[in-house]
Write a protein that binds this DNA or RNA. Structure first.
Lengths: 169, 169
DNA sequence: AAAATATACTTAGAATACAAAGTATATTTT
DNA sequence: AAAATATACTTTGTATTCTAAGTATATTTT
C-alpha cells in the first residue's frame, strides 16, 4: 500500500469512528456529536452569530442552519434576531439546553480522550502537529483553485485563516 | 484551546476539505470521492464481494449498497451474483467504468498529493504514523463497548484488525 | 429432514454536509 | 434617493453515512 493510500485509509477509519461515536452518543445523551459541539460553542461564544459558529465548526452555514433547526425544534436553543442588524441570528441556549450540556460527555469518545491523555507529551504534540499539517495542506486547496500557492512557505496558518473570508471578495 | 479541542478542530477541517474536494470532483470526473474510491477497489480487488469492499473502505455494507446503486444506475458497474453462494454479489466494472477510472484523478486533491510528496521523508512517516495512531485509538473503541481494554498495551494493530470480524461472532 | 442460526445483501428512516438559488436586510455606488 | 452589491440566513435537492429491520440463501443443530 502506497503512502497516499495509507493516509486515505487511516483518515477514513478516523472519520468512521467519529461517526459511529456520534451515533452511540444519541443513545446516552440524546444529541449527536455535531449537535453537542454546536451547543458547546453557543455557550462558549456567547452572543455569536450563526456564521461565526459555522466558521468555528468548519461547517457551511447551510449545515449549521439544519442543525439549529433540530436543536430548536427540541427546545434546546432559541433563535434570537439581532436588533442592530436584522439579518443576523444569535442562537441562545434555553434552560434545557444548558441542563443537557451540564450532563453531557465529551464530543469525542471518553476512552479516546483517556488514551490520548496517557500518551507521552511529545507524542501528543506530534499528533496535533501532524493533524494540523494535513489540515493545512488540504484546506489551503479549497481557497478557490489557489493557482499561485507558494508551497515552500511555512506560515500556512494565514492561508487557513483566509478561508473564512472566502465570500468577502 | 486545549489539546483535545485542537484534535477535534483539525480533524473537522480535514473532513471538510475531503468533502469539498469530493464535491469539486463531481464537476471534473462526474463521480464523487467515495464513488471513485469504490471503483478503484473494485478494479484492484477483482472478484471481491460487497462485504469485502465495505471492509476495505471502512464503510458499512448499507453504505456500499447505496453507492453501488448509483454507480449501477449510471452503468459504471454491474452486480454479478455469485454462482456458488447466491447471497454474494461481485461488483464488476463495465467498459465505461473502466474508461472513467483510466482518466480520473486521485481521490485526494492533486495539490495535496503534490505537497505531501514534497515533504521530507521523516515528516511523511510522522504524519502516517500519527494518523494511524489516532485511528487505532479511536476505532478500538468501536469494538462493542470494549469494557476490558488494556490501555497500556502497544500492539493496538491487533485490536484494529479484529474490527472486520465484529459480525463473525 | 426440520428448526434454529448465521451470513450477505437491501430497504427504510434519520442526521450530516454541501452547493446553488432564494429572501430579507445592509452598505456602497452612482 | 435609487440602483447595484454585499451579507446573513433559509430552502431545495443530492450524496453520504449510519442503525435497525427485512429478505434470501447457507450452515449448523436437533
Amino acid at each position: 500500500m502506497n503512502q497516499i493510500d495509507q493516509v486515505l485509509t487511516s483518515l477514513r477509519r478516523v472519520i468512521r469512528a467519529i461517526d459511529l461515536h456520534s451515533k452511540q452518543l444519541v443513545k446516552t445523551a440524546s444529541v449527536t456529536g455535531p449537535q453537542l459541539r454546536l451547543l458547546q460553542l453557543i455557550r462558549s461564544q456567547q452572543g455569536g452569530t450563526a456564521k461565526e459558529l459555522a466558521d468555528a465548526m468548519s461547517l457551511s452555514q447551510a449545515t449549521v442552519t439544519s442543525i439549529l433547526d433540530r436543536l430548536e425544534s427540541r427546545g434546546l436553543i432559541a433563535r434570537v434576531r439581532s436588533q442592530t442588524d436584522k439579518r443576523k441570528i444569535h442562537p441562545q441556549l434555553t434552560d434545557s439546553g444548558n441542563a443537557l450540556l451540564d450532563t453531557a460527555p465529551t464530543p469525542l469518545q471518553d476512552s479516546f480522550v483517556r488514551k490520548f491523555d496517557q500518551l507521552h507529551s511529545w507524542e501528543q504534540h506530534m499528533i496535533i502537529a501532524s493533524l494540523q499539517r494535513v489540515a493545512e495542506m488540504m484546506d489551503a486547496d479549497t481557497i478557490d483553485a489557489s493557482p499561485f500557492l507558494d508551497i515552500g512557505s511555512l506560515d500556512r496558518a494565514e492561508a487557513a485563516d483566509l478561508q473564512g473570508e472566502k465570500h468577502s471578495r
